[in-house]
């Protein structure tokens, strides 16, 4: 039982990170009907920016460590959000009227470009967050152990997801995002600047991805310029699982995937944990491509 609960907590932790990344896939798909294959690289660049910030003088001790880490997360989010907007403007907007395949090829091009840029800037070898970047505090709650990083990941991820959910569901601009996802032309007739909505999506998605990148970097410590593909694919699986285009679905899908992965790792073999994830992706694509929660359905009457 202890193993089960422990793996559940581990699963929720990585799952929350997958959810953050999955939101970027699902929001871009929802509004543009396009899979942004460069999204995993926003995650990766977030983890590198976090690495540089953590290694710099920022953690000098002027403010408590947890607060400094939040500052690192916020700064990385801002940097990658800016990058996201630039990528949309340069690589996707000119292709808005071309076929979807063209946009996908452009996205793969962006991905290769970003990976190589990171390799040139930070080097081809694995980099590691310094050991002192995370306090080694562990709490014992009812027989199971929870460490500082798990609490930080859960707090930041759930905070961001709740904020996003409220923004999309409760504000007029959020309603404009949902309306644009349903029907671009009618959204335009409401006076909604669809280009601006797309820009906003490319600000929010990469920012969430960057937060995930910093958090996972701090959690596993090691980062590499190719991790975008691995984690991108996992988060993509989570997005499909929740029904691509469905925002709450991406949140649930990420958490579910993290839990399944960690239960598989705990009960079967941790060396096989990636296999479980991609097995799930294959099974979903074969038997339930609209996801477990169903597609975001726009009723056309």
């Amino acid at each position: 039982m202890a193993l089960f609960i422990e793996q559940l907590v581990n699963g929720l932790t990585v799952g929350a990170v997958y959810s953050l990344v999955a939101l970027g896939y699902t929001m871009v798909y929802g509004v543009m009907r396009m899979i942004n294959f460069a999204h995993g690289d926003f995650f990766m660049i977030g983890s590198y920016l976090g690495f540089t910030l953590v290694s710099s003088a920022l953690l000098g001790g002027a403010i408590p460590l947890w607060a400094a880490l939040i500052v690192v997360v916020v700064l990385s989010m801002a940097g990658v959000a800016l990058l996201g907007v630039i990528v949309e403007r340069a690589a996707y907007r000119p292709l808005r009227r071309s076929s979807r395949l063209t946009a996908v090829v452009s996205a793969i091009g962006v991905s290769i470009f970003l990976q190589n840029a990171v390799m040139l800037i930070w080097g081809p070898r694995y980099r590691a967050y310094p050991p002192w970047s995370v306090p080694s505090i562990t709490w014992q709650v009812g027989g199971i152990y929870i460490n500082f990083m798990q609490v930080l990941i859960l707090a930041v991820s759930f905070g961001l997801m709740v904020a996003l959910y409220l923004f999309v569901q409760r504000t007029t601009v959020g309603a404009a995002i949902r309306a644009t996802a349903i029907d671009h032309d009618t959204a335009r007739l409401m006076g909604i600047d669809v280009d601006q909505i797309i820009r906003l999506i490319f600000l929010i998605g990469p920012a969430l991805g960057a937060a995930a990148g910093v958090l996972l970097g701090l959690y596993y410590r090691q980062i590499h310029f190719t991790v975008g593909w691995t984690y991108g694919l996992k988060a993509f699986t989570a997005a499909i699982m929740g029904g691509i285009g469905n925002i709450p679905g991406a949140m649930v899908g990420g958490l579910l995937l993290g839990i399944l992965e960690m239960l598989g790792a705990g009960y079967i073999s941790s060396a096989w944990k990636d296999v479980f994830v991609f097995l799930i992706l294959i099974l979903l694509l074969m038997f339930r491509p609209t996801g477990l929660l169903g597609e975001r359905i726009a009723e056309k009457v």
Binding site: A175, L189, M190, G191, I192, E299
Partner: peptide, 25 residues
């Protein structure tokens, strides 16, 4: 303001949200 053919209301949004979007400006 153009009210399009076939109504094109946003089906998964509430009536009130649809109206609010009409006043987006």
């Amino acid at each position: 303001c153009h009210v399009p053919e076939g109504r094109r209301v946003f089906g998964t949004l509430t009536v009130e949200e649809n109206l609010n979007l009409g006043a987006y400006k």
